[in-house]
Design a protein around this nucleic acid. Structure first.
Length: 1029
RNA sequence: GGGCGGUUAGCUCAGUUGGUUAGAGCAUCUCGUUUACACCGAGAGGGUCGGGGGUUCGAGUCCCUCACCGCCCACCA
């Protein structure tokens, strides 16, 4: 009769199983959670992936960890709820869609218009959101899909409007002119965080500005240096340090101090720097002093080309030790100059149009792009002899992370969130432990960033996002302003709770009335518009809506049952690069809106790097595709791999390989081949396409999977588990549950139960501390080395009539508990086996039967049971393991074929013999070696190979089998080894200070170890003498 | 420039409060198709724990210092 188990394949065929089980879980509603006051909630909100693209390996890591936590807590009895969703990712998404439309239809967003573009992006979003959600499902994520949210959906939009209104009302939102990072391509301001600095080779121009009416002893020109000469059109001053001598003294003093403590390697550089400084001082100080003098006298310069008169001013900003010691001040186009300008009340002259061309201020250069203007301005200055010199140097060019075009600092009107009180609240939350960041070191970055309390620019000149709910009217005069204010008041009077007014005015001359509306009310907005109020076209920074994610998704601002039950959420799992951008802002918004932190714990997981230690990114083309891993190794293997990699040291290196679809050979991904759309296989010489294929002919090629061999371990583990389960199922035939009273349990049963108990405790504790890697390791080692390699092997000998029932009960019970432990990490294979186990052994347990549980996903997480914990049994079993290892080693050394039976004797105490004797059948089974005698008087075979292990000695009878030379060599080596160790121990123990100062138990341990070694030496020496004829 | 991390076997990584002879997986070598599994089993080789100093009876582990790698944050007109 063939059982079901015997028909199972020898490999875990995950593909169809994954689909079937996921469907089953969903159909049974096992992911869904409802508030239930009888149970504690455990809540995670997903960091919403951008709808821009597909999930990458970082997402796979992030979501796997969340699913592990959710499944584990669900099994623990918590009402676990994992809320899924996606992020509209304003700039990123709009940029991608705009680019696509431009490439494919040669149209700009202005050709399409706002409504049309937004419609197109929604279409895009629907498509990509579906793809992302399906990828999460393939990973096995047990999200509550009924609660799926999108940061731009109506529920979230409402939360955004309420929050914005609230902050506006509290005067925490204000309108301001600020120097922003302007992306001329996307024509929007981007935040500092979306700017990356790139080092490029550039030029450093030294320009000469003529002094107006110089006295005879005064310089005729002032030299200023710049990497962006075109900004000179916006210069409104040149600054020098007020006390160049003092400033230089200070720098000199600092250098000398550093030199005094410098290491030799630094000395040369410091000495050179000091030398240069002194030379410079000698050469330039008189001139700088002169200029500072002139500046205090209110002297002026002539700005070349435009012939504008600009003042020479003194300010702390210019550093006399750098460049010419003078700085041109362009308040509208440089962050530092902006600050200088504010201090001195300088005009802010904006020379640029939003599209990056020069505006009317630029005179002859109006309409040119910055790049063209630069060349022409330089030429013009050159021809006028106003270029002192041009240096080559490496400059840092700010680049927009979204459009990859250079950023221009640009003065623009923006909405800001005032951060001081909000930031402070978020700092307090971490400071007082309401929010715990794990690993703790990431709290430093969080604190430092918040401590700056820099106001948050929240408006973006985009169309894709939450449009700012503010209607404004610009007024040219005081009277008009007052009138507009009154009109607005009369309109919003009826809605005083949900509308607010701010007046922004300059010196009572001109100004703007802003009306913020909390709700989508057509009547109010229509009335406002009738009066000439215009809705702000800008949208909010994506992070504004993301910051509300923990509560907007639960229905806030409504007082929903969900909100009351699930908020604050339990754990946030995220990557370190958004701790400030996202985590900090969620904390302060949660506190502002609900007065409670959004989550209790933040777990920051590692980053995945490629084999060269570089971050994986689309543009580098060095990523592993999680779907490829799932296809090749299975979702469980991907998940186990991820969990196994999540160590506390952070950052995981993952060498990447292509798999040739023709010959299945792995090809290492290198800097050269990783962005190629097609690769030639060096083995079979055929060509395949990669995940970066875009052209039709490349896409038509068979695609090479993008993998990492680091998942093979996990795949092998899954397969091992599959086969162990198959074996178990085969041996459960005729199983009937019978409770165990304990007396019938053998040593090996007590051993595996104790180990199971220990590992259960360990895994639980590791997960509590987010030590994922440790949890995975504990499960792996237990399942493979103890359950499979020892316990199952032993049970093979016990499936006889007398022992069968206990053995089966034990087998079903152990496998049951193992599956539970592994389920959070390996949901598919464990659930699959569970289903079979429910057929083969529906009732399982040890002292009493467990309640039936049709689905492993909601089975109870094992609790450790102190009755099962038996350390002495574990050490007794260790003797068995050591003897077995000795037998195998002797066999291997002596090169005796496995099928040749051996016999052996063990010399040991009576006590050891008592518990070792019943295990002797297993020596036969597992090492093909028969124990002839065990005990203190065991006769030693005449010709033997021996091995001393802790507290006992194994003698294998090798009559007719012994290779004397091999044995001699082995014993010599062993002897030498023991002698070295004895020497070390003796040294240690004869060291008076060790014996006196080390703790007694350590000394005692050393003494015992020495005794054992001495015993071993005796037996090895004896064996050696016996060996020689 | 400031901060944080890393440097342990050929490769990828563990190593908890300092305490026997520093571990695992992969790779390598030897042997093996014993009815769960060759995505397997048995065994072996392989490390002066980045360098240098210090504290200690004792340091991969703590302190100092140097070197290299990575990330984050500020920035040079």
């Amino acid at each position: 009769m063939t059982t079901i188990a015997e028909q199972l394949p020898t490999r875990f065929e995950f593909g169809p199983i994954q689909q079937r089980l996921y469907q089953m879980w969903q159909d049974q509603g096992l992911f869904h959670s409802e508030p239930d006051s009888n149970r504690k909630p455990y809540t995670i909100v997903i960091p919403p992936p951008n709808v821009t693209g597909a999930l990458h390996l970082g997402h796979a890591l992030n979501t796997t960890l969340q699913d592990v936590l959710i499944r584990w807590r669900r099994m623990q009895g918590y009402n676990a709820m994992w809320l899924p969703g996606t992020d509209h990712a304003g700039i990123a998404t709009q940029a991608v869609v705009e680019k696509r439309i431009r490439d494919e239809e040669k149209k700009t967003r202005h050709d399409l218009g706002r409504e049309q573009l937004v419609r197109r992006i929604w279409e895009w979003k629907d498509q990509y959101e579906a793809r992302i959600l399906s990828q999460l499902k393939q990973l096995g994520c047990s999200c509550d899909w009924d609660r799926t949210r999108f940061t731009l959906d109506e529920t979230c939009a409402k939360a955004v409007r309420h929050t914005f209104f609230d902050l506006f009302n509290k005067q925490l939102i204000y309108r301001g002119k600020r120097l922003v990072n302007w992306d001329t391509f996307l024509q929007t301001a981007v935040s500092d965080d979306e700017v990356i600095n790139e080092k490029v080779a550039g030029l450093f121009w030294h320009l000469k500005y003529p002094v107006i009416d110089p006295l005879p002893d005064e310089p005729t020109h002032v030299v200023v240096a710049t990497t962006r000469p075109e900004t000179m059109l916006g210069d409104t001053a040149v600054a020098v340090h007020p006390d160049p001598a003092g400033a230089l003294d200070k720098v000199e003093a600092e250098l000398r101090e550093r030199l005094a403590y410098a290491a030799s390697s630094e000395r040369v550089a410091l000495e050179t720097a000091l030398q240069e400084l002194l030379e410079r001082r000698a050469a330039m100080l008189p001139q700088l002093l002169k200029l500072a003098q002139m500046a205090t006298e209110g002297r002026t310069l002539c700005l070349p080309i435009l012939d504008r008169v600009i003042p020479l001013i003194v300010d702390q900003w210019p550093k006399p030790e750098l460049g010419s010691g003078c700085v041109k001040i362009t308040p509208a186009h440089d962050p530092n100059d902006y600050e200088v300008g504010l201090r001195h009340g300088l005009p802010q002259i904006n020379v640029m149009n939003p599209d990056g061309t020069l505006n009317a201020v630029a005179g002859p250069f109006t309409g040119l792009t910055l790049k063209k203007a630069r060349q022409q301005i330089v030429d013009r200055l050159e021809s006028e002899g106003l270029i002192d010199r041009i240096d080559e140097r490496e400059i840092e060019l700010p680049i927009s992370d979204r459009s990859k075009t250079p950023i221009e600092p640009y003065l623009a009107d923006q909405w800001f969130v005032r951060m001081d009180s909000l930031a402070q609240s978020a700092m307090d939350a971490v400071g007082n432990g309401d929010v715990q960041i794990v690993p703790q070191r990431y709290a430093y970055g969080y604190m430092d960033w918040l401590a700056e309390k820099r106001d948050w620019p929240v408006s973006r000149q985009l169309w894709w996002g939450h449009q700012i709910p503010v209607w404004s009217k610009k007024c040219a005069a005081e009277l008009e302003l007052q009138e507009a204010n009154q009109q607005a008041w009369s309109i919003i009077e009826s809605a005083a709770d949900s509308a607010a007014i701010q007046i922004e005015s300059k010196c009572g001359q001109e100004g703007t009335v802003h009306v913020c509306l909390r709700d989508e009310t057509d009547t109010l907005s229509a009335s406002l518009e009738k009066l000439g109020f215009v809705r702000d076209p800008d949208v909010l920074d994506t992070w504004f809506s993301s910051a509300l994610w923990t509560h907007s998704t639960l229905g806030w601002p409504e007082k929903t049952a969900d909100l009351a039950y699930y908020y604050p959420t339990s754990t946030l799992v995220t990557s370190r690069d958004i701790i400030t951008l996202w985590v900090a802002r969620m904390v302060l918004m949660g506190l502002n809106n609900l007065g409670q932190v959004p989550f209790r714990q933040v777990f920051v997981h590692p980053k995945i790097l490629d084999g060269y230690g570089e971050t994986m990114s689309k543009s580098k083309g060095n990523g592993v595709d999680p779907l490829d891993v799932i296809e090749k190794f299975g979702a469980d293997a991907l998940r186990f791999g991820m969990v196994h990699l999540t160590t506390e040291t952070q950052d995981v290196r993952m060498p990447v390989q292509f798999e040739c679809p023709h010959c299945q050979i792995s090809i290492e991904q290198t800097h050269k081949n990783r962005v190629l759309p097609r690769v030639d296989c060096p083995t079979c010489k055929k060509t395949f396409g990669t995940q970066w294929a875009r052209e039709e002919e490349d896409l038509a090629l068979p695609r090479g999977l993008c993998l990492s061999e680091r998942f093979e371990v996990a795949r092998n583990f899954v397969n091992k588990l599959w086969n162990a389960s198959r074996f178990s199922l085969m041996n459960l035939e005729g199983y009937k549950f019978a409770s165990i009273d304990g007396s019938e349990l053998c040593l090996e049963d007590r051993w595996i139960l104790s180990r199971l108990n220990t590992v259960t405790q360990q895994v639980t504790s590791e997960l509590e501390q987010f030590r994922f890697s440790e949890a995975a390791r504990a499960m792996y080692d237990f399942a493979w080395d103890e359950f499979c390699s020892f316990y199952l092997e032993i049970l093979k000998s016990r499936m006889n009539d007398q022992q069968r029932q206990t053995a089966q009960t034990m087998l079903a019970f152990t496998l049951d508990r193992l599956l539970r432990l592994l389920h959070p990490v390996l949901p598919f294979i464990t659930e699959e086996i569970w289903q079979y186990l429910n057929i083969a052994a529906p009732q399982r347990g040890l002292f009493e039967a467990d309640g039936p549980e049709p689905f492993l996903i909601r089975a109870a997480w094992p609790k450790s049971d102190s009755r099962l914990f038996a350390p002495q049994i574990e050490s007794q079993f260790a003797h068995f393991q050591q003897v077995l290892a000795a037998l195998r080693e002797i066999r291997a050394r002596q090169n005796i074929a496995t099928k040749t039976p051996m016999s052996f004797a063990i010399r040991c105490s009576q006590e050891i013999a008592t518990y070792l004797a019943p295990l002797s059948p297993y020596f036969k089974k597992m090492a093909n070696a028969e124990a002839t005698q065990i005990g203190p008087q065991a006769p030693i075979p005449r010709i033997n190979s021996t091995m001393a292990v802790s507290q006992l000695e194994v003698f294998v009878d090798l009559d007719g089998l012994l290779d004397v030379a091999v044995e001699d060599a082995r014993l010599q080596k062993e002897k030498a080894n023991i002698e070295t160790q004895i020497k070390l121990k003796q040294q240690k123990l004869s060291n008076a200070s060790f014996v006196d100062r080390a703790p007694p138990d350590v000394v005692q341990r050393e003494r015992e170890a020495l005794q054992q070694l001495t015993d071993q030496l005796v037996s090895v020496t004896k064996a050696l003498t016996n060996l020689s004829p």
